[in-house]
């Protein structure tokens, strides 16, 4: 028993040195009757990271989020929030999570103010209630509808009240299931900015089927399909995976066949794809090469009287990668 004071000395030191893992999900498996909804899903998130959860409808995004927040239980595997197991100490773990489910959990017969007060008490938040609710309302811009009954709110406002509810108590972990659905473009930009800001102090998981959203907001991406994780990478690195080859899109005025053969003869070019006539006498080509061949192509055409009307490097977008992964995987699955 004499070493207890020592260990309490150690803990604060540990926290400083170790990069703190906020969310740890291990081997989650979940069956709905006979359907396997989740198949050994594992990932972890460090403090202050924003994870984008991507996948087609029915891939298991919401199921995973519901398990992390303790709403559903898994058939196997474990979830730890800030080192606390959600099944072993649910109350402590749930205190650390702010959750915005797919459909915001709003009581239609209450005013926004009353609803937030209720959620504040339900979550047993120990902060000055009035000030805290006011500041959150400012943050998500719902101060002007606070006295309205939730039933009468538009979809965008409902979504924001749902977000406000998740932010109550300033939980270190935020789980947002499609937070921008139903918002207009201006609101979407605002909410994304808000999530980015929140990501500085919170650990955030957000799901989406919009790739641009994930690309704009998240540090890490998790792509899930048929209940399995098919890609788990940093947003910056996932867009670079395809960049071993460089692609160009060209529009060239000239004779089709000749242009094609000139392009093919340029040193370093792997593949030339004819994409057809775009204007009268002008053809579009896509050139894949091992290195930057723009100068070589320019010189090759400078010798002829064909003119290059446009030359544009093509970055492989997240969209392409996503489609590659999703369709590629299901192809191989069907084959097996």
């Amino acid at each position: 028993m004499s070493n207890i004071p020592n260990s309490s000395f150690l803990i604060p030191n540990l926290k400083k040195e170790v990069y703190f893992i906020m969310i740890e999900v291990k081997d989650l498996t979940k069956y709905y009757v006979k359907n396997k909804a989740l198949d050994h899903v594992s990932f972890s998130l460090k403090e202050g990271e924003i994870l984008g959860f991507l996948g087609p409808n029915g891939a298991g995004k919401s199921t995973t989020m519901n398990i992390i927040t303790g709403y559903l239980s898994s058939d196997s595997g474990s979830v730890k929030i800030d080192g606390i197991d959600i099944l072993e100490e649910p109350k402590e773990a749930k205190k650390r999570i702010g959750y915005l489910p797919e459909q915001p959990p709003l009581y239609n017969d209450m005013t926004v103010q009353k609803y937030l007060e209720f959620m504040f008490k339900l979550k047993k938040v120990r902060l000055p209630m009035k000030e805290h609710i006011n500041s959150i309302c400012e943050q998500v811009k719902i101060s002007d509808v606070k006295e309205k009954i939730i039933k009468h709110l538009s979809k965008g406002y409902r979504q924001r009240v749902g977000l406000a509810q998740a932010l109550l108590g300033d939980p270190p972990v935020l789980i947002l299931d499609e937070p921008t659905v139903g918002l207009d473009p201006i609101q979407i930009v605002e909410i994304r900015r808000l999530i980015r800001d929140l990501g500085k102090q919170h650990t955030v998981i957000l799901s989406s089927h919009l790739l641009s959203e994930v690309q704009a907001v998240c540090d890490k991406i998790l792509i899930i399909n048929h209940g399995k994780i098919v890609a788990d990478e940093l947003t910056s690195s996932i867009t670079q995976t395809g960049s071993s080859t460089v692609s160009l899109e060209l529009i060239i005025e000239g004779r089709r066949q000749t242009v094609h053969s000139i392009l093919q003869k340029v040193d370093g070019v792997i593949k030339v794809t004819d994409k057809g006539e775009c204007e009268r006498g002008c053809y579009e080509f896509r050139v894949d090469s091992r290195r930057d061949v723009r100068r070589l192509i320019f010189r090759a055409f400078a010798k002829t009287d064909f003119s290059i009307l446009s030359m544009r490097p093509v970055e492989q977008s997240l969209e392409d990668i996503y489609l590659d992964i999703i369709t590629g995987k299901s192809d191989t699955e069907e084959a097996s």
Binding site: T69, K91, Y99, P104, L106, M119
Partner: peptide
């Protein structure tokens, strides 16, 4: 029906 039970069951309440 209103999906509000999600709020209740994910709150720190048994």
């Amino acid at each position: 029906r209103q999906k509000t039970e999600q709020a209740l069951l994910t709150a720190p309440v048994g």
